[in-house]
Structures are given as structure tokens and as C-alpha cells.
Design a protein around this nucleic acid. Structure first.
Length: 573
RNA sequence: CGGGGUGUAGCUCAGCCUGGUAGAGCACCACGUUCGGGACGUGGGGGUCGUGAGUUCAAAUCUCGCCACCCCGACCA
């Protein structure tokens, strides 16, 4: 490709809307252009990268024996009614209506369509297991699209679905897919980690996320420093400590605390160690409960994990905090003065809270706290549960090592759906026993679009992008110095360009009549891995200059046999 | 949806407080000088100042409504 025939438009300045480095660089390179919130055009440059990612994903899936198909982006509401998701999926589902007044949605995912396809195509257990996949445009009407293509509303996704005669077969495919995913992300040149995850709105049982590790990631990952345990921190369980609370050492006492309504104020004004304080959070009770509210106790320096809390039957799901007025009506004190002693509503304490001694908490009377509280002596020992979010330094749930934290960008997610969809849609096959069996399903997603952004997050420097070679838009760039003034330079460059093309190399030849500095800056910005510079200087000594994008020094390659030298570099890196 | 912010040339922004001729840098076009790390000069094209109403002799500027976009939270590949 010659730059004269390639739409390249780079900018020196960073557009104001871009917050993170990948978004900034994608805009500065001219890889994407925003049409409207969360919806982007991919320019020829950006599309080359997107296609590379897509190609690698497709290649590995094909090798694993999964079959590609292509499902419609627009889906009829009837299918979604069958699974109940027409209502349940919520506002993320973009609903549209045709001229006859029939309802459709723009597909955010394809469980319904694939299940419909399979229930009419597959009749016998002998055809199972079977896995289909597609690479296709999805639309999710995100509440807040963000970070360019990292969280866009319209995006390209690889989604795969597997169907099985029994759970054992599903489990087998699931772990095969786990390996395929690992191969894909390795081949893409990404630093990643797989973690145990919550299955979220898609539903189902077992689930793993694949995260590209990057500081700008939106997810927090907890992992053990001594084992391969890793999980999304929203899910990381915390073990109950085996040792109970220490013997009481302090007198129980009531203290007037008119200026302490937060944990911070309590700690600063009264010298209570923060790890001897507890927060009392009042939330709505679950449907079957007799009380209206439940009090959740968390150590003062910890945060409530809402996912864990709402899984408790005592707690309403979704979690709903009581308002200040509700708290005052039920307890007779404001939210800044609550505690477990003398509380009239059910109490659930975090495991850690149950192990405290001589701690401080509100007195359920405005402007008063109790100090030196001890379980059993001053207040009944409460029910306990795992309520808080894990933090760095906690013991790993597998008992091996302590937890570290990292930030990640979720680029893949695999689920064992079980029969949630196949049952709702009556997707059955005949088994060996001659009876109908509901097919357990797995589903497996990769965010193709997001991978491009994640790869940039992980591979950039002050000059621009440093693409991993497998997904670079071009492998090599040929830069002639002042070609207009020099026949020799122009001829040598044209010749090398032709040879590289002939050899099947993806080469960009910068034939624009530009000052060298501009070319260098442009090519470093767009991150082409290999650069060959041709100038009078080098030609005089029979050499070309070569530089790898991540290096800071040039090396020379002899003009004679330059093609072979370059091919060797491509193979080596 | 709640909270905060911004809308002026393709991009980055000034001008608004204190109403009166719409600006700069980058980008773009032409010519010339330059030319191995984002050159310089001269000339030029380009804006219904987000939008609608109001106040006023006069609105980018003041007032009100609306819209869009961005940032912080819950959601997700």
C-alpha cells in the first residue's frame, strides 16, 4: 500500500473527549471516528487492525473444530418473549418496530436465535456436542458509553454457543474453550489473566472472564501470590476466620459523640482505631422476611459487597438501602449513630466483624456511640455472612497465599449456561435412551472491538502505539528520504517496495512528499513494527537503515539482499 | 437515571464577567524558500457562535426552555 492511496489522517493534538491512552491514540491515528455517542466508524487504518484480530480469533476457533455461521442482527421480539428476556434484559435492549407494528430488537447477544436454530436443526444426540460461532455486530444501549471503543454501544463480538447431551459434555467443551481462549489471547500478543467470575445477567453456573491487564481497566481482579487463584474482586469470597474474638479488655461505655457521624470523624475525634469500628448499614429485607429491614455490619474500613449481600435470602435483591427517613422511623436515630447494641431489627455481621472485641459502634441514639463493645457480653452474638469486598492482603480463598490486586479489561467471558435457555425454548434432542433431553448449553464471548483498544492500552509509548506484530495494520513501512530530489532514493525505495509486496509482506510505502520528521512521527504514532529508511546517506555506503518500533537505535542492513534481511527480521520478532 | 461540566472553523482553544467588526495555533489550498525527527514566509478558503424563544436600537456575550456531548456512580464483550 502506498500512503498516497491510503487515507491517513493523523493529528498532533489530542481530542478533548478522549480520557484514556488507547482512545487518544486511536483518534490521533485516525483509526476511528465517532458518529454519535458510543457508535464509531472504523477507518481503513483501524479496520486493518480489527480484521487482524478477527482473523486470529476465527483461525483458532476453526482449528478447534467450531463452525462459523452468521445470525441476523435484528431479532423478533417473540423469541425474547419465550425466554422472558424481552422484559428482563432491560433498557440495554434496543427495541425497534417495523412498518407493520411488529417488535424487534437489535441483537445484544444471540442465545435466543442460536437456540431457535439448533432446536430445529439438531434432532439426535449423535449430532452432539456441537459448537457454532459468529463474528458479528452487536448493539447494547449502554447507560454510559465510555473510553471510545472500549465500551461502545455498537461493537464487534465473537459469540460462540455449544450444545450438549449432558453436563459432562458441556464441562468438557467449556474447558476446551478455556484453552482455545488462552491460545487466542497469547497469539494476539496480550498479557492476560483468566479469572473466576459472576455470571451476571446472562445467567448460568460456572463462568470465567479473560482480562487484559492494564491500569486503566474497569475491573478489579484479585489473585493469589502463591497459587493460580484469580477472581473478579466483586466475587472473591472471604473465608470465615477460625479464631473467635479476643477476650474483652475494656469496659462497655456510652460516649457523647455530637460531632461524629461518619467513621472518619469517629476515628479522628475519639482516637478509636478504624479496625475497631463497625458500620451499620440498613437495607431492605428480602420478600419472605418478617422484618422490613436488615442491618448489615461491616468493619469501618471495609466496603459492602452488594453482590454478596443480595444473594442472602434475608436481603432484598436488588439491594436497596433504606432512606434516612426509613431509618429514623424504624430505629429512632439517624444513619450516623447506628450500631448492633439494642437494635430491634435482624442483624447480619460480616465474618470479620464477628471476630472483633472492644469495638465501637453507634448507640442507636443520635449523637451517642458505645465504646468497648464485646459480643456475648454486651450484645447477642449475631448471624454472620461473607459481606465485604476482598482487599489486598486478604487470605486467598483457596488458602494458599495472600491476595494481590490488579486492574483488568474484560475481553472474553465463558459461561456454562446449563439449560436456562434450552428449557425455556424447549430445545431437546433424542438421547441414546430414546427419550427427549433438554440440551445443556455453553456460551463464549470475545469482544473483538475491545481487544483493539486493550492491545493499545498495553502497548504504547510516548511516540504512539507499539502494535504486537500479529495485529499491526502493516508489518513494514518503507520511508524514502527526499525522494523527490533523488532518483536513486526513489528507485531503491520503489524496488524494495515491489519486492516486499511480491514476498507477501504487508508493507506501507510512504510516497508522500513530506519532510522526514513528519513521516517518522506519523509511522511511530500508528505503530508499524518494522521501519526501513532509504536515503542518499545510506545508499552511498550500500546500506539501508532498519529500526524496530520498540527500539531506540537504528541498525544497518546491506542494500544487496535487503529483502532477505527484512524477511528474517519479520520472522524473528 | 442521579450528580457535575462543556457546546465558538476539521482539531485544540481564546472572546462571554463589562452586549456593538467573530479570533489564534494546528489542519486545508496556492506560490516561494526549505527538507534525515512534527520547517518558514506571503496570500487564501472555511464558522446561521448547539438549538428555540425572550430582553435590547443591537446578543457568541444577558434570561429561560430544549438538544447534544463529556466526566463521576449502578450495567457489561
Amino acid at each position: 500500500m502506498k500512503t498516497s492511496n491510503f487515507h491517513l489522517f493523523t493529528t498532533r493534538e489530542t481530542p478533548a473527549e478522549a480520557e484514556i491512552v488507547s482512545h487518544q491514540l486511536m483518534l490521533r491515528c485516525g483509526m476511528i471516528r465517532k458518529l454519535t455517542s458510543g457508535i464509531y466508524t472504523w477507518t481503513p487504518l483501524g479496520l486493518r487492525v480489527l480484521r487482524k484480530v478477527e482473523g486470529i480469533v476465527r483461525d483458532e476457533l476453526d482449528k478447534a473444530g467450531y463452525q462459523e455461521l452468521l445470525m441476523p442482527a435484528v431479532q423478533p421480539s417473540e423469541l425474547w418473549q419465550e425466554t422472558g428476556r424481552w422484559e428482563k434484559f432491560g433498557a440495554q435492549l434496543l427495541k425497534i418496530r417495523d412498518r407493520a407494528g411488529r417488535d424487534y430488537c437489535f441483537g445484544p447477544t444471540h442465545e435466543e436465535v442460536i437456540t431457535d436454530f439448533v432446536r430445529s436443526e439438531i434432532r439426535s444426540y449423535k449430532q452432539l456436542p456441537i459448537t457454532f460461532y459468529q463474528i458479528q455486530t452487536k448493539f447494547r444501549d449502554e447507560i454510559r458509553p465510555r473510553f471510545g471503543v472500549m465500551r461502545s454501544r455498537e461493537f464487534l463480538m465473537k459469540d460462540a454457543y455449544s450444545f450438549h447431551i449432558d453436563h459432562a459434555s458441556l464441562d468438557k467443551t467449556y474447558w476446551e474453550m478455556y484453552e482455545v481462549y488462552s491460545r487466542i489471547f497469547t497469539r494476539l500478543g496480550l498479557g492476560f489473566r483468566s479469572v473466576e467470575a459472576d455470571s451476571g445477567a446472562i445467567g448460568g453456573n460456572k463462568s470465567h472472564e479473560f482480562h487484559v491487564l492494564a491500569d486503566s481497566g474497569e475491573d478489579q481482579i484479585a489473585f493469589s501470590d502463591q497459587s493460580d487463584y484469580a477472581s473478579n474482586v466483586e466475587l472473591t469470597p472471604i473465608k470465615q476466620e477460625e479464631t473467635g474474638p479476643a477476650e474483652p479488655a475494656e469496659e462497655f461505655r456510652t460516649v457523647d459523640t455530637p460531632d461524629a457521624h461518619t467513621i472518619d470523624e469517629l476515628v479522628n475525634a475519639y482516637g478509636v482505631p478504624v479496625e475497631k469500628t463497625i458500620k451499620t448499614l440498613i437495607v431492605h429485607a428480602g420478600e419472605e422476611q418478617t422484618a422490613d429491614f436488615v442491618a448489615l455490619l461491616i468493619r469501618g474500613d471495609r466496603t459492602l459487597n452488594t453482590l454478596k449481600a443480595e444473594k442472602l435470602e434475608e436481603v432484598a435483591s436488588p439491594l436497596l438501602f433504606a432512606t434516612d427517613k426509613e431509618i429514623r422511623d424504624a430505629i429512632g436515630a439517624g444513619p450516623g449513630s447506628l450500631g448492633p447494641v439494642g437494635l430491634s431489627i435482624p442483624v447480619i455481621a460480616d465474618y470479620e466483624v464477628a471476630c472483633l472485641s472492644d469495638f465501637a459502634a453507634g448507640a442507636n441514639t443520635d449523637d451517642q456511640h458505645f465504646f468497648g463493645i464485646n459480643w456475648g457480653r454486651d450484645v447477642e452474638v449475631p448471624a454472620t455472612a461473607d459481606l465485604r469486598t476482598a482487599v489486598e492482603g486478604d487470605i486467598s480463598p483457596d488458602g494458599k497465599g495472600i491476595l494481590q490486586m490488579a486492574r483488568g479489561i474484560e475481553v472474553g467471558h465463558i459461561f456454562q449456561l446449563g439449560t436456562a435457555y434450552s428449557e425455556a425454548m424447549n430445545a431437546v434432542v433424542l438421547g441414546e435412551d430414546g427419550k427427549s433431553h433438554v440440551m445443556p448449553m455453553g456460551c463464549y464471548g470475545i469482544g473483538i472491538t475491545r481487544i483493539v483498544a486493550a492491545a493499545i492500552e498495553q502497548n504504547n509509548d510516548e511516540s504512539g502505539i507499539c502494535w504486537p506484530e500479529p495485529i499491526a495494520p502493516f508489518q513494514v513501512v518503507v520511508l524514502p528520504m527526499n525522494a523527490k530530489k533523488s532518483h536513486r532514493v526513489r528507485e531503491a525505495a520503489e524496488k524494495l517496495y515491489a519486492e516486499l509486496l511480491e514476498a507477501g509482506v504487508e508493507v506501507l510505502y510512504d510516497d508522500r512528499d513530506l519532510r522526514p520528521g513528519v513521516m517518522f512521527k506519523d509511522m511511530e504514532l500508528i505503530g508499524i513494527p518494522h521501519r526501513v529508511v532509504i536515503g542518499e546517506r545510506g545508499l552511498d555506503s550500500g546500506a539501508l537503515e532498519y529500526r524496530y518500533r520498540r527500539d531506540s537505535e537504528n541498525s544497518e542492513i546491506p542494500l544487496d539482499g535487503a529483502l532477505d534481511s527484512i524477511l528474517k527480521k519479520l520472522g524473528n520478532k
